Simulated assay, not measured.
Amino acid sequence: MTVIIEHKWLFAIIGEIAFFALASAFFIARYWFRMIKTSCFFILLLIFNELFLALLAVFDYIETGKMSSFQIFTAIFYIYLIFDGKNEFAKLDRYFKKKAAKWKGETIPDFGEEEQHDEKKYGAARAKEERQGWYMHLLIFMIGQCVVLCQ
């Protein structure tokens, strides 16, 4: 276990590379080969990969007994994952579904309402969206500062 903790950044980098590889495998299996069950297997592996990175941060805290930049980085990543990860993954899903259909010469799916949500906003709606993003960043910053100052 000590070896894993000593090389935690290497494992984090390998975990992120595995994330992109597994996400790519998911989209390829799902939309290019239409292998739905296999794509679900890749999602399961993706979840286990992310759980491994979370456990790595927990074990690092248990081993050192104090907060480190690695744990803060991991916490920020999971905060992002919880608040915006689902939306980003949905955007990627729509993008790859369209790309696969285009490359295969099939009819490109129309997502209707889902894409209208992604349209650019103007005026008060845009300002509200920007404020919400700014509040989220402020909250994450304050949590990070509290963690660093409470050490």
Rank of each mutant, 00 (worst) to 15 (best):
I76N: 14
K99D: 01
F70W: 08
G112C: 02
S24W: 03
I13T: 06
C146N: 15
I108T: 04
N87I: 06
D84W: 00
H7L: 07
A75T: 09
F141N: 09
L51T: 09
Q145H: 12
A23S: 03
A100D: 00
F73Y: 13
A90L: 02
D110E: 15
I13R: 08
M136F: 15
S69T: 11
N87W: 13
I5Y: 12
V147L: 12
K121Q: 07
D60Q: 10
R126Q: 11
T107E: 15
F52N: 07
I62R: 12
Y135R: 04
A54G: 14
E114N: 05
K8H: 14
F19W: 09
W103V: 00
K104R: 04
F26R: 07
K121D: 05
A25M: 00
G133L: 10
C146I: 08
C146K: 12
S68H: 09
F48S: 12
E6H: 14
G15R: 04
E16H: 07
Q151T: 09
E129D: 15
D60H: 10
L149M: 11
F89A: 06
I4D: 13
A23W: 00
F20E: 08
A75F: 13
N87V: 05
I13P: 10
L56I: 02
G112K: 01
I76C: 13
E88M: 08
I143K: 03
A23K: 01
V148A: 10
I79T: 10
W103E: 12
I5W: 09
E106K: 03
L44C: 01
Q116P: 02
V58D: 10
Q132V: 10
E129I: 01
T74G: 10
E119L: 03
K37T: 04
E88K: 08
A125I: 04
M142V: 05
F26Q: 00
R34V: 05
Q145K: 12
F19Q: 03
I47P: 12
Q145D: 11
L81G: 01
A29P: 04
Y135F: 09
S39W: 06
L46K: 03
G105K: 05
L22Y: 05
L22T: 07
L56P: 05
E6Y: 14
E119P: 01
I14Q: 03
L46S: 04
F96C: 03
F96K: 02
R126T: 05
L149F: 13
I4P: 01
E63D: 15
A23C: 02
L44T: 07
W134Q: 13
M67L: 15
R94L: 00
F41L: 07
A124T: 07
I143H: 09
L81P: 00
I28M: 04
